[in-house]
């Protein structure tokens, strides 16, 4: 039975390690081993049974494809999510700016100081804007 295990491990070599992969490998090894013992029960010798099982396993590409399409449950690739972050940052910084402008003009109209906090806040939408640009 060692060769079944070794063979499956070799097939899965290219697929990046994950819990899903480990579970699936265990499952496949177990099922293939069961198939081998069924074939042996029908009168095949061990080597024949293992070879037949390995040949009938089919093309690993099918499984690779399934693993390739969605490595994470919530991929951040989605540009829509980022335009949402960008929108939020624009609204947020806009409101903060408005608050500073109001405080400035209302309480100390002689000194224009609101630009300093506005510069600090401007980093937020800028960072989001460039991430959004990068993801697009």
């Amino acid at each position: 039975m060692r060769t079944i295990k070794a063979h499956v491990k070799e097939l899965f070599n290219d697929i990046p390690a994950s819990e899903q992969k480990e579970l699936m490998m265990q499952d496949i090894i177990q099922n293939l081993e069961e198939k081998v013992s069924d074939l042996m029960f029908d009168g095949k010798d061990e080597e024949d049974a293992i070879n037949k099982t390995i040949v009938e396993f089919g093309d690993i590409e099918d499984i690779k494809k399934e693993f390739g399409t969605n490595p994470k449950p919530f991929p951040l690739k989605n540009p829509k999510r980022f335009s949402l972050h960008l929108g939020f940052s624009l609204w947020g910084s806009g409101l903060i700016t408005a608050l500073f402008v109001f405080i400035n003009l209302y309480y100390s109209p002689d000194v224009i100081w609101f630009v300093y906090p506005v510069f600090a806040v401007a980093w937020w939408p800028l960072a989001m804007f460039y991430r959004w640009l990068g993801k697009k």
Binding site: M24, E56, G58, I63
Partner: peptide
């Protein structure tokens, strides 16, 4: 084929 079967499992589970 087992490879096909497990690809389907993976897809259905996802």
């Amino acid at each position: 084929k087992e490879a096909t079967l497990y690809a389907v499992f993976q897809r259905l589970e996802r």
